[in-house]
Amino acid sequence: MNVLAEWTALVCEELGIDPAKVDRDMLLDLTKDVAHGVARPAAPLTAYLLGLAQGAGTAPPDAVERLVRMAGNWERATTETLGDT
């Protein structure tokens, strides 16, 4: 077992989460896209906010895809926003 898999299993056990419900690769891809498209500190914050929304039952089914799209459009969106001021 590699370190990441072991850590994930231990954290799931500690937090009472079924590890089968964790899509590790999807989450790592999301945080990579946010870190590169927005800012590195935004990556763990985004993952945390997604987790809060999912835990509260308020995350839409396509939440990850929407967040990836937002991160990919971040530079263009901020340029447009800053250009309006």
Rank of each mutant, 00 (worst) to 15 (best):
A71E: 08
E80G: 04
L10C: 04
E6H: 11
A71H: 04
A71M: 02
A35K: 01
T78D: 05
I17K: 02
E75K: 14
A42E: 06
R69T: 11
P60E: 01
D25Y: 04
P61E: 14
D23K: 07
T58E: 10
L52Y: 01
V22P: 01
P60Q: 01
A56K: 13
T79E: 15
L27P: 00
L27C: 06
D25N: 08
E14M: 11
T81R: 15
N2R: 10
P61M: 05
M1H: 09
V68C: 04
V22H: 00
P44N: 09
T79S: 11
Y48C: 09
K32P: 00
L10G: 05
K21M: 10
A77N: 14
L50R: 08
L15E: 13
G72S: 08
G51Y: 05
T58Y: 01
L10M: 09
W74R: 02
E65C: 05
A43Q: 05
M26P: 05
P44W: 08
L50Q: 02
L15M: 14
P19R: 12
M26C: 10
T79G: 07
G57N: 05
L4E: 13
D29I: 05
Q54G: 03
E14A: 14
A9L: 08
N73L: 10
M26G: 07
L27E: 04
D25S: 10
R66V: 08
V68N: 00
H36T: 13
W7D: 09
A39S: 11
D29P: 00
P19L: 04
I17F: 07
P41W: 02
R76E: 15
L50G: 04
G72N: 13
K32T: 14
E6K: 11
A5H: 12
A39T: 12
V68A: 05
T85L: 15
T58N: 03
E65R: 10
V38F: 02
A9W: 03
L30Q: 04
L82H: 09
K21L: 13
G37A: 09
A59Q: 01
Q54H: 00
A39Y: 03
T46G: 06
A71F: 00
L28W: 01
A9T: 15
A77C: 09
G51I: 05
